[in-house]
Computed example of a mutant assay.
Amino acid sequence: MSIKLHLDNLPVTRMAYSYSVLNELLLSLKVLGDHKHYPLHIGWALATRRQLPDGMRREHRFFSLIFQSMLTFLWETGQVEEADFAIELEMLAKRPLAHFTDAIISALLIGSTPTGKRIVQHFTTLATFQQEPTLQSQARDWLATYYPDSIEIVDLLLTNPTALKERFITFIKQYWELVFHASWAEIESFFLQEIGRRGQRLYAEGVIQGLADLMPKMHINEDSGEVIFFNNSEDEERWLGSKDTLNLYPSYFTYPSSLFTFHRDQDERLSVSITYPLPEIRHIGQSPLPPEQLLTTLRAIGDGTRLQILQLVAQTPRSTRELAPIIGLSEAAVSKHLKLLHQAGWVSAERNSYYVLYRASIRPLANMTFALNQLLKKN
């Protein structure tokens, strides 16, 4: 499964990057209810559960349907210009009631179950849901199977949806005050650092190369302007033009997953949003480079000729035939240097007609930096 984005016509000025306190809080509640699928946060989840009073634990189980399904439909990072919990919560509270009930009904009827089965394949409004006993019965059966603590949600949707929303807002506010406020104080600096780094890379290297280290399972074809993300979602392929937007949202609590959302406005402008794990979190989730691999990485660039080759292929993809006269070596000698760079991950190879083109990769730099940091860190 993959998501392929064609970005050759997307200007860097149509890139946006930000983060949201409320989005991270909601994602943390998802982790809290399903910590087995978030290995780096198991310790945090277990410690946090112990902090919650019994009443808040019950409320968390009651709203688990929302946290586990269609979360991005309820709240999306890019809706705020400045990350501030009080402002964001007020924005959510002031949203029309339909925005909240639509998210829940979509989770009930369209959101995939653990078996992949869906009750319906299309969007359903609250008014329709209230008038269709069959849908109500199906929703109750689905909840009884997968989210038994949330069955009462159906009754509140039918009798008092406003009270349901107010109950949700109250729970979010209490969770912030009791638990998440302290967690956020510890992790916000990661977001500020990533926004700064990402902005510098995008404007220095352009859209395609600016995304090169966004996540581990991805492939970039700079010549065609394609970026392919490999994940567990359904296959998607989208073309972004000069009026479309690509939004990047770093996240502490989404690892090891990434979230993709697609939206077209009334003028048919496409907006693609990617919520991806912070680099600091990805590095924690990676095994440190073993000493022999670290040595291979360092040795590959510990030579003046190979550094020159790496600089040349960083400028533009090149073949051995193009590199040889520039370096002043035979093609066979250049190939030996490229083989060492390729083994260490500093270059990637891609066939183009009769030639193999080599392009630079910065991924070993991040791995090497993390490995050296771990090696030299004081206990």
Score class of each variant (00 low, 15 high):
L32H: 00
S137P: 00
I153D: 02
W142N: 01
R118Y: 07
H99W: 12
H60P: 00
V154W: 02
K36M: 11
F62R: 00
Y147C: 12
S106T: 02
T77P: 05
F85Q: 05
G111C: 06
A93E: 11
V154I: 15
E90S: 13
E90Q: 13
E152I: 04
F67W: 01
Q131V: 07
F62D: 02
A45D: 09
P39C: 09
K117R: 13
Q51N: 06
R58Y: 11
F62E: 01
E59V: 06
W44S: 08
L89T: 02
L157F: 09
R57E: 13
I66M: 10
L52Y: 02
V154F: 08
L158W: 06
V120G: 01
L29Y: 02
W142P: 00
G33R: 07
T145V: 10
L156V: 14
Q131L: 14
R95C: 00
L71W: 03
I110R: 05
A83T: 03
A103Y: 02
E76Y: 02
L74S: 05
V80E: 13
I153F: 01
L108R: 01
L65A: 04
T134K: 03
D102T: 04
Q68E: 12
M70S: 12
W44I: 08
L46K: 15
R118Q: 14
Q131K: 13
L40M: 13
L158G: 08
H37R: 14
A86D: 13
G43F: 11
T115E: 14
F123K: 07
H99S: 10
A93G: 06
Q51S: 11
Y147G: 08
G78N: 09
I87N: 07
R58T: 12
K30W: 09
Y146L: 05
A144Q: 10
L108C: 03
T115K: 14
T48R: 03
V154P: 01
D149G: 07
M91W: 12
H41F: 14
T72M: 10
S112D: 11
K36R: 15
P148E: 09
S69I: 08
L108W: 01
T113Y: 10
Q131M: 13
P53F: 05
T77I: 05
F85C: 04
H37F: 11
R95W: 04
D84I: 03
D54S: 14
F73G: 14
P96C: 07
